[in-house]
Amino acid sequence: MIAGYNFGYLDEATKRMIRRALPKAVAIPGHQIPFGAREMPLPYGWGTGGIQVTASILGPDDVLKVIDQGADDTTNAVSIRRFFHRVAGVATTERTAEATIIQTRHRIPETPLRAGQILVYQVPMPEPLFKLEPRVAETTRLHALADYGLMQVKLYEDIAAQGEVATSYNHPVMVNHRYLMSPSPIPAFDNPKMHRNAGLQLFGAGREKRIYAVPPWTDVRSLDFEDHPFRPVRAPHACALCGSEESYLDEVITDDAGGRMHVCSDTHYCGGRQ
């Protein structure tokens, strides 16, 4: 741990402010709580919201895992993991089961979370209605009145135009039968994992200055129609490295001659099976 920084980089007043927002978020599952997001030593869109949440809940005994698109070894994951190792001195791991806090961008690990684990999502745009209703005051009112016909219209339009719901990621969910929530840009494949998850799921949006949460064992339902039920999308292949037919796959281009392979996006899951 380097000298000159407070534990976990953020000052204690900021942590306290975020720790006041978090119980509100947990108390009203899926409801967006405003908070005073700080400037962080990395650009917006790289995980400023997630880092602030992680920094506020991190203790000296925690074990941190950071993934980006499911991988532990991508730039964003390596940088954030090293950042917290330097400014908080906490232990880090790539093993999902060993971690107490997992910060993630765009994936939920394949290994199911257990009670006591916390999953922190980096969220670029917390408002699920923003593409349909540009006025923030109006979206707030729609949430207050649980007036979500508009979101259903978007799904209707997808089916009318393409025969199916076309959102393969960031598919909107209803949390606890009340609030419409953006799951952050995780693949629709991961949406069912949010439903009655044993772990606590926290969402931080730095640029938009919002925090929201899904407490353990909360109902999370993906929006759909009765005659067009939600279905998680997965590439119809087996992982080229571990052979898994259940995990979410990345398609990797291997040469200039059209060569490609499908591999697990969750590197720790894949490594454990090889």
Partner: peptide, 27 residues
Amino acid sequence: LRMEVSAGGNVGERLMAAGQRHYGDIR
């Protein structure tokens, strides 16, 4: 009207706001 949304979506919006969730019926 919602000018970006199809005629069917425009008519269906009130049905969906009222809680209807069957695509075929709404259409």
